[in-house]
């Protein structure tokens, strides 16, 4: 009973200690207050986040400061103002720079091979892992039984009266 109470108290304490600073940060708020970002800007940012910088490696468009990226961001806003859809804009940039401009790895065409490799890696590793574990389950019985001499030797070892201190 005491144990339970101790656990419950500990749980509450840990929660408070951990959730205190977390709660105070932005962690528990579901995002920025809507008033801060105008909806048009939010849409533009959403598009930027799906594109990469055409020059840097692995840098998302919304975090890159070089000139091309600033131009691209202006272009995105102009296109949104003209009423183009998110997909239109992504397709336009993919047409101009190739699929490599898309932040998310496409799930069609050649990139399917990488998805396949990923799936295969996980599968191969899981299967060989499971096979290994299965092998471990079988064999205890197959191990050769100990001979008489070995049994005697073992029991001698186990017998404390035979222990010699050095």
């Amino acid at each position: 009973m005491m144990m339970r109470i101790a656990i419950a108290t500990a749980a509450v304490l840990v929660t408070l200690v951990l959730a205190g600073p977390l709660g105070a940060t932005s962690l528990l708020r579901p995002g920025q207050p809507a008033s801060q970002v105008p909806p048009a800007e939010a849409r533009a940012i959403a598009v930027e986040q799906q594109l990469l910088c055409p020059q840097c490696t692995n840098k998302r468009l919304d975090t890159c400061e070089i000139e091309i990226c600033q131009d691209m961001r202006r272009d995105i806003r102009a296109r949104l103002d003209r009423g183009e859809s998110e997909q239109d804009i992504l397709r336009f940039f993919a047409g101009r720079y190739g699929d490599r401009i898309l932040a998310a790895l496409p799930t069609s065409g050649f990139p399917l091979w990488l998805w396949g490799w990923t799936l295969l890696s996980v599968l191969a590793v899981s299967i060989s892992g499971l096979a290994w574990l299965r092998r471990q389950r079988r064999p205890a019985a197959e191990a050769p039984a100990l001979g008489d001499a070995e049994e005697r030797w073992l029991s001698q070892l186990a017998d404390p009266s035979n222990a010699r201190e050095g």
Partner: peptide, 13 residues
């Protein structure tokens, strides 16, 4: 090499 399309594998993947 194979597809002649230099795909970037970004952080999202």
């Amino acid at each position: 090499l194979i597809d002649d399309s230099r795909i970037t594998v970004g952080p999202a993947f």
